[in-house]
Computed example of a mutant assay.
Amino acid sequence: MGRVSKEQAQENRRRIVGTASRLFREQGTDGVSVADLMKAAGLTHGGFYKHFDSKEALVDEATARAFDGAEEQRVASTGAHDGDPEAALREFVDDYLSPEHRDDMAGGCPTAGLAVDMARGAAGSAARYTYTEGVRAFARQMAGDDEADDGLARLSTMVGAVILARAVHGDPLSDALLAAARAEVSR
């Protein structure tokens, strides 16, 4: 089999990182093997190490990709309500605390989807640093106009509600958690 072009190699790497970003949020970093990841990306297992030195290196990059995507979504949500930041925030909160977001773990917020993995991971890892900075940025977005409001309470309520709602999915408590968090954050 011949060598792939530089452009194809870059596309393969993007595909691996994008697939990993989704699978890690859905199944956890320990729940996805390199072989399963490469199969899901439509590539061979042996090709992984042409792109990454280790699975940890991929976790670092996939975490960054997930947070970049989340930031783009938040910016787009805000831009849809030019001139009315309160309406943008209300819509964002409603979307975030929706059954659709709860049910889309792979495409959902990395703050909720990767929380347990980051808590169990190495404190000095690039992924943990990226996650921490992503949480900081998310909290800033959730902050109100009051300078004393840092957005941490809203963020904690929202992310906690999504994590808990996912954990009890299938029970009416799941929807009740989302509704209670929406009511609390919207006050």
Rank of each mutant, 00 (worst) to 15 (best):
D145Y: 06
R102S: 02
S125E: 02
Y131W: 13
A139N: 10
A123D: 10
C109Y: 00
G124P: 00
V116N: 04
G134T: 06
G107H: 11
A139E: 15
A126Y: 00
L114S: 05
D104G: 08
R140H: 08
V116D: 11
Y129F: 05
E133C: 12
E133K: 14
R102V: 07
G107A: 12
A126H: 05
A139M: 13
Y129H: 07
D104L: 05
A115I: 02
M142V: 06
D103N: 15
R128S: 14
Y129S: 12
R140M: 08
V116M: 12
A119S: 10
A137R: 15
G108W: 09
G107Q: 06
D146Y: 11
E133R: 15
D146V: 14
V135K: 03
A127Y: 10
T130W: 01
G121D: 14
A115P: 00
D103K: 12
D103Y: 05
F138S: 06
G124Q: 07
P110H: 03
A106F: 05
V116R: 13
G144N: 02
G113Y: 04
G134Y: 03
Y129K: 08
A143T: 08
G108N: 07
A137C: 02
D117E: 08
Q141M: 13
A139S: 14
A122Y: 03
R136D: 10
P110N: 03
Y131N: 06
A143N: 03
R128G: 01
V116C: 02
A119V: 11
G121T: 01
M105R: 15
